[in-house]
Design a protein around this nucleic acid. Structure first.
Lengths: 142, 142
DNA sequence: TCTAATAATTAGGTATCCGAATTGTTTAAG
DNA sequence: CTTAAACAATTCGGATACCTAATTATTAGA
């Protein structure tokens, strides 16, 4: 089988299992995976105008704005007009949002632990290696 | 960094790039990625009742039924009541659906080729290896 | 100064997803 | 042999997520 065809063939297989992992690991969370990613991005940036947030998450600014609405309604982030450039709106995590991040992080790592306990130590090590390689190689495509 | 934490950390990184790949590779297609996956599953099974389809795609039967509606409207699949068990509805690809699959497959492989041309041969080989490992190891979790 | 560009939001639309309720069909218990 | 339970699919109501185009507000530059 040719290299490229093999990759085209394996892509959906991997996406399937990755999706499965997501649903197991994030199960019972108060946020969807996308909301979690957004909250985390806002937290990590510390000072995140909406346009940067949208670029970071690779979605249209209108989508980002909608998602921020939901996070605001949930009480995990708030908007502030940037006084340096009043066109910009900067998003910040609230105290509750940061608490949630800490809590979810613990839960997620714990769920990974439980899930991956079903693999041998050898397989877990291969998994980490494969993840590292993917992140490195695919990162070059960005 | 501990193994599990490393995996938890790399997961979103990989999902991000995998999502990027999807949007590049499937760009300009007449079907969404999910519709493509569904069409392919129906084709591969050959004889696919709705409940099997839903299980295969890991979605609720009501979601699968809706998606089938759209594919029916697009003219790529059709429903038939199973005469052996009239509760079941079996989904089949139409001739047009099968033509589309062939066409999209060619386009997708071609897009992968263009995309991955930006990597060195060595990196492409590492990518295939990492994909193979992931598919194998994560497959054990299903 | 006033037009361009920029940033965000709103409006309108689609796809995807779910659980619960409903409809039709089959199976199994009495 | 009838009827209740189980099963398969669909419909319904509701939510998230996503887009493009249009709109509003602000700022920068000719």
């Amino acid at each position: 089988m040719e290299q490229i065809e093999r990759i085209a063939q394996l892509y959906p297989v991997i996406m399937r299992v990755m999706g499965r992992i997501r649903s197991v690991v994030h199960e019972g969370m108060d946020l969807t995976y996308n909301q979690y990613k957004m909250l985390l991005t806002i937290y990590d940036k510390g000072n995140c105008p909406l346009n940067l947030l949208a670029r970071e998450l690779q979605i249209a600014m209108s989508s980002a704005s909608e998602m921020v609405d939901r996070l605001v309604n949930l009480g995990f982030v708030y908007r502030m007009v940037d006084e340096e450039n009043r066109r910009q709106v900067v998003i910040y995590t609230t105290e509750r949002g940061e608490e949630l991040i800490r809590e979810l992080r613990r839960g997620i790592v714990e769920n990974y632990r439980l899930l991956l306990a079903r693999l041998s130590e050898h397989d877990r090590e291969r998994l980490v290696q494969a993840f590292e390689t993917l992140a490195e190689v695919l990162g070059k495509l960005e």
